[in-house]
Design a protein around this nucleic acid. Structure first.
Lengths: 197, 197
DNA sequence: CTCATGGGTTACCGAAGGGTAACCGATGTC
DNA sequence: GACATCGGTTACCCTTCGGTAACCCATGAG
């Protein structure tokens, strides 16, 4: 695992890549800086040439992964014909993200960070952004408070369904799951619509 | 906060009570045994007279809280007339549990434990049990794999909706939320039913 | 009054881990 | 071929924290 010398930029990126796996597997507290250094084939001080602290590295990671997720969803939901299709595409993007790289899922929603005040806020922002994105996609007549609740609920819906697969390491067809889940979500949304159309 | 002497049983229970708050607020790793001892108005060795280790104490807590939640849901959903009512009562019990004592919610689903292998399994069991309970309540014609996915998704739905309130400390009317969420869930379930009734 | 019981304390150990100071050596440049 | 640059290493410090050994004192029984 002894790595050749890398340029600063390349090394930084490699550390981030490796750290996703390490943190994803063992959580924030279950992963030491030595673990990450070793996995990168390098020694600890190198990490500190690129990141101020363990927390800083972790923050960078959350940011990168969170942004990636949100972009995928945003991209998938533009140019969808109607609400129904948007819903399905949104979930499709989400589940594909989970299926493709479930370390990223674990990192964000596996939980280790949710509670530690310092990171909780950051995860919240991502979660909220996802909810807002979804809320925006929901063209349903609802008072704003309930709309927000529903939006967060739908994010949880996708999260809960994903956790089942990720936890067991079970493989799954993201598009199939998206179909079922979005079917449920869409029908549910129509039901809570004030107009009941 | 200097406490009078307590009997062994009373002290044990008091430690558990205090620990829920401490762990709930700061997470497993963010809480030291000294913190708990101090909050209980006692010194560290006392904790070790009642629990073998920090992990042991935490396990006892997860067990107690998890059992409590599952019992509440089970109790609420017996003697419900039809599926629709069962769904609403189940969510009602869940959201009331969240509203009444959101430290318990944070402890179980706030995340700190989800990832650390040792506790992850335990949380999974509770989560799965909730999903199974819900799956059992779903009288919908679905193949088993999808049924399980949906069940986990619905657990996530409730979790996601709750997290929004708990995170901000916002108060909410559990029965109102239950009404909206169960409306969505119920309509969604009917939609994924193979028979489409 | 004496003494065993048992809840509680003080003071400590040892390991883990975040973070850093000082040094090293390959590389391309002049 | 000397030298500055910069990626990298060794060895260490220091704090935190889980866990424990040894001791202490209020209490009620006889």
């Amino acid at each position: 695992m002894s790595s050749p010398r890398l340029s600063a930029d390349a090394r930084r990126q490699q550390i981030l890549d490796v750290a996703i796996d390490e943190f994803g597997r063992s959580g924030y507290f279950g992963t030491s800086m030595n673990d990450i250094a070793e996995a990168a084939g390098v020694t600890k001080p190198v990490l500190y040439q690129h990141f101020d602290s363990k927390a800083d590295l972790y923050r960078a990671l959350l940011d990168e992964v969170g942004t990636r997720l949100l972009e995928k969803i945003a991209k998938a939901t533009t140019d969808a014909a109607d609400g129904r299709e948007r819903t399905e595409r949104g979930f499709g993007a989400y589940f594909r993200w989970v299926a493709e790289d479930n370390q990223e899922f674990t990192l964000l929603f596996g939980g280790s960070a949710r509670q530690e005040g310092e990171f909780a806020a950051q995860i919240r922002r991502i979660n909220d952004a996802a909810a807002v994105a979804i809320a925006g996609l929901i063209d349903v007549d609802l008072d704003p408070a309930h709309r927000a609740t529903i939006a967060h609920g739908l994010v949880g819906l996708a999260e809960g369904a994903s956790r089942r697969f990720v936890g067991t390491g079970e493989t799954f067809d993201p598009d199939e799951i998206a179909r079922v889940v979005s079917q449920l979500a869409w029908a549910g949304l129509r039901a809570v619509d004030r107009n009941g159309r």
